[in-house]
């Protein structure tokens, strides 16, 4: 069952990423990215890390994607890159992809070696994180609430219409 889910999610994830690159419409690209992120979240869940899985969906598929879509709507690029530029970006992308592949292979090699340590099962546990958040990290947690209020007030002040005298 687990193996089946893993293969399904992996194929879906790779397919979504391919779709994101191939599709011409940027809005569709962004939606494919949502699918890819969700599949990654599913993979995390399979690895017994429910907290990271949920965070993956909330932050990447939620917040960051909304930001992307906002930028796509605001900037509105009609025509793509010129062929001249496209050649350069293709070459650069190929080089970077090869570098990334080598990096991943090296990381994989050390991760699969018998010396590697595995993270304990507690790491992705939501209740453990919640406990730490309200005991050891209570002060940073409270500061974060002040941070969010400040950011919210600042954003509202900058965009609200001026009331007349």
């Amino acid at each position: 069952m687990e193996l089946f889910l893993f293969i399904l999610l992996s194929i879906l994830c790779i397919g979504a990423v391919l779709g994101m690159i191939i599709v011409n419409n940027q809005a569709y690209s962004a939606l494919f990215l949502v699918l890819a992120f969700s599949c990654t979240a599913g993979l995390f869940a399979l690895l017994d890390a429910p907290f990271i899985a949920v965070v993956q969906i909330i932050i990447y598929a939620g917040a960051i994607l909304v930001l992307f879509i906002f930028v796509i709507m605001m900037v509105d690029i009609k025509e793509g890159l010129t062929p001249e530029k496209k050649k350069w970006t293709m070459a650069l992308a190929c080089i970077l992809a090869v570098v990334l592949l080598i990096e991943l292979l090296v990381a994989l090699k050390s991760a699969l070696s018998p010396m590697a340590t595995s993270v304990s099962g507690q790491a992705g546990n939501a209740s453990e994180i919640g406990h730490l958040l309200f005991t050891k990290y209570l002060y940073p947690f409270e500061i974060t609430s002040v941070l969010i209020i400040a950011a919210m007030v600042g954003a509202i002040v900058l965009v609200k219409k001026k009331d007349s005298e």
Partner: peptide, 27 residues
């Protein structure tokens, strides 16, 4: 009032967020 760099970073963000808005107040 802290020696923990994590808290110092959060404090810096509170300061920065308010500063960005303050800088742009002359809409």
């Amino acid at each position: 009032s802290s020696t923990d760099l994590l808290i110092i970073f959060l404090g810096l963000e509170v300061l920065s967020m308010s500063s960005y808005a303050l800088a742009g107040l002359k809409i």
